[in-house]
Design a protein around this nucleic acid. Sequence first.
DNA 1: CTAGGGTTAG
Length: 697
Amino acid sequence: MKLMAIPKAPKSRLFFLGEDPVRLLKLAADSNNLNVGKQIHAHLVVTNKVSSHNNVAQTTSVINLYGKCGRVSVARHLFDSMPKRNVVSWGALMAGYLREGLALEVLVLFKSMVSVDNMRPNEFVLTTVVSSCSSCGRVEEGKQCHGYVLKSGLEFHQHVKNALVHMYSKCSDVKGAMRVFSTVPGYDVFSYNSVLDGLVEHGHQKEAMEVLSLMVGEGVAWDSVTFVNIFGLSSCLRNLRLGLQVHCRMLKTNIEYDAYVYSTIMDMYGKCGKLAYAVRFFKCLQTHSVVSWTTIMAANFQNGYFEEALNLFVKMRLEDISPNEYTFAVLLNSSASLSVLRHGALIHACAEKLGFKDHVIVGNALINMYAKSGNIEAAYEAFSDMIHRDIVTWNVMISGYSHHGLGKEALNVFQDMLTAGDHPNYITFVAVLSACAHLGLVQQGFYYVNQLMKQYCVEPGVEHFTCIVGLLSRAGLLDEAESYMRSVSIKWDSIAWRTLLNACFLHRNYGLGRRVAEIVMQMDHNDAGTYLLLSNMYAKARRWDGVVKIRKLMRERNIKKEPGVSWVEIKDTAHVFVSEDKSHPESRQIYEKVAELLVKIKLLGYAPDITAVLHDVEDEQKEDYLSYHSEKLAIAYSLMKTPSEAPIRVIKNLRMCDDCHTAVKLISKLTNRVIIVRDANRFHHFKDGYCSCADYW
DNA sequence: CTAGGGTTAG
């Protein structure tokens, strides 16, 4: 091996001769100057001072240096070679591990410190150990540390106290946090920040507001962390007024703000519906990071600008910024909202390649994306692949199955969730109850609302009661559903009444339907869907006068019927079809294909259902109107362009009409294809002449 | 010579 020439030492190397090495090591550590630190270390080694039996302080200083500069394994090596250590040596090493995120190792060290070395922890060590408990979520160990704190009388020490407050609030023991916070006098901005963060994170916004006013009352000066917490509180509450107030205060407070503050303020504006403010803020930033990019993408997503969120990713890549797990979550959720399966799968591949697929938020977003894009099998695959699951994981899987009409599968996952010992929440029960509705499990639905929800301390809300209305309706118990609505004393929203109205339509209960329609239209004047449902109901009953009345109302109230739009992805292109529209370049062939299909399924028993079309059109023309509904065009085109075994996925902006539903069932049988349609409410899986919604949607 | 709080997903 060739030896490298040893460079001549520059004069500056020896600048520290004659200085106190401990002091210099601290300077190097605090300024994160590993190079200078190493030189001092080398000097000590050469002059044989490190590891000599009498110089614990110097070795500890070196340990501190390596710990602070991210070389904890070097620090550990030195620590292990020390014949004698003091409490400061332990403290320095533990701090190094905590800095690296190796909190569990700190706890291990603490155990051997007190039980093997028989050393009493001081306020520094306890602060570090309690912080470690927070960062790895160990409440039990945290409580034991609290015992040590009390035993050593250190509960009045500001750092220790703050670490305890933070530990309890991070481990979702808000009561414990408040106890330490309020029983031990003397707060500084740190304790306020800790307790605020914990309260906000665990959904105790009311208490957070109280603590905030306490803090304001005491005149504690805010620092940038306080701003982060209070902006976070504003976004949680979707309270724009509070957010604006805090922004004003920020402009008037002359302290230094950092990227954390800038990201949360954008997040606040995004969540409070002020996307333009967030964007303006984003554009003013001199430098952009993954976090600021992801925040602005998320703000677009939250405000319905899904495509823009995806486009921003391209711009982010142009700035050469690498995505992280949050970025992928936003991208996947945006793809989900657009139902762009191919694009979503591409992002999936990208996330996998960059090693982000095992993050819970990415896994959750994958399940959501596949479920919303119509590929429920792939959603389940993503679900099965996950190493860590949280409440959202279970919720998206259960509600995914429910939306696809797969009630049995949904309830199985719910059972697995309970077996795994995870606690269902408000959202879980909405999904579970709608699964019960699909399966017609009336008794079970009532059991969940009346018993199981109590057991898990989940307060039933209007959405759960609406599920019960849906459950009764679906079982054909319309009068029971109505009297249930009148007997439960909550404020029903228009969604609940529309559920009942839809049931009246499906069960052709014209009398009740008219009454319910009155209520719905009073609550929501502008929903075209309600008017159409009602007019369809009149048409089914051949009450043409009713149809005319509704059309007139719609004209008077200037309610526009949204045109039916369907789209399919074929290769790299999304093909969009509007009812009756002939602008597609292959329009002629498509219309011919539809006509051919209709002729063939008529032989299987299809009869066009013309009642849904305006009564004043000639019957033959009515059939034409139905024939070229957008989903029929989209399906015909897919049949022309895709291999015979490929499933067809169609997305549609409105609810499917009766006629198309019947036709597509028969087309699936005729062509032996799986056809999946995502309409405005749910998924329909057509196969062998049947649909997963069991003709109730 | 060792110690405390914060950003982006649903």
